[in-house]
Amino acid sequence: MTIRNVNEFLAASQQKDASQDAFELESPHMLEVKLNGRVWAKAGSMVAYRGAVNFVRQGMLEQGLGNLLKKAVSGEGTRLMKMEGQGRVYLADRGKKILLLRLAGESIVVNGNDVLAFEDGISNEITMMRKVAGMLSGGLFNIRLSGRGIVAISCHYEPLALPVKPGQAVFTDPNSTVAWSGSLTPDVVANISLGTLIGRGSGESIQLKFSGTGWVVVQPYEEVYMQRQG
């Protein structure tokens, strides 16, 4: 372990401005948002800020009536907040690795628990997987992000992106699935023999099947999603 004096530590740990983009990684686990207007972020993800910044919890109708109804039916959803003003905001999500993706008019679907932040020009829509929600104790909801701008998503450890090609379906554990291309609509399949062998509580007995052309990102970790009450 390297021992540094205070000045050496500060020099190595201080904020870096290596990009002109609104989103910049200060470390693999810390996101800096150069705020000049409005950005959406996961509620509770702010760890520090400076400047004139207001944090406002997303209103019930701001997600649109369709999203509101889906949240009411499923009892699920992701809590977002608006960060408005001018300044620097630093975001993190339980030490998870942060990935930055630039959308140029396309759509991606992200596990709702893994959405960290996105620029104001990105539209969001909650998508439900009722069959998975009924089979897994915590359920599963996703957010479709579309438009132009930068999206920050989080994952545990190093992610793996798997290509999906015609005739070459990819099967994933729902609890390890982080995101996939908007061109794909996964099917929910149940491995009855595996479920009988290891019990209903195991995520491996329920899988997502991705077919067509696109990609899917998985993490080397099975995350447990707690269903929100009320």
Rank of each mutant, 00 (worst) to 15 (best):
V151L: 02
D120M: 00
K96N: 05
L162V: 14
A117P: 05
G149S: 05
V53E: 09
A152W: 06
T127I: 15
K165I: 09
V115K: 03
T177N: 07
N142E: 14
V151E: 03
L160F: 13
G134C: 05
C155S: 08
V89A: 10
L68H: 06
N67M: 08
M60V: 14
P174Y: 04
V56K: 11
K71V: 12
D120C: 00
R94T: 09
N175T: 14
R57V: 14
L100M: 07
V47D: 09
Q86P: 00
G64F: 14
G167D: 07
L162A: 12
N111T: 01
A52I: 08
A92G: 04
G64T: 10
L68V: 10
R50S: 11
M128W: 11
L103G: 02
S45D: 06
A104Q: 11
A152P: 02
L136E: 15
N67F: 12
R144W: 12
R144E: 13
Y90M: 06
G51H: 06
A117Y: 01
M83D: 00
R88S: 03
A133R: 12
L69N: 03
K71D: 04
F55V: 05
K71H: 09
N113T: 03
T172R: 02
V164A: 09
V73D: 14
K165W: 13
L136S: 13
V109W: 08
F55M: 08
R50A: 10
L68R: 07
A152H: 05
L160R: 15
K71A: 13
A43E: 08
W40Q: 00
M129K: 10
E158K: 15
M135G: 09
V89D: 04
G139T: 04
F171T: 04
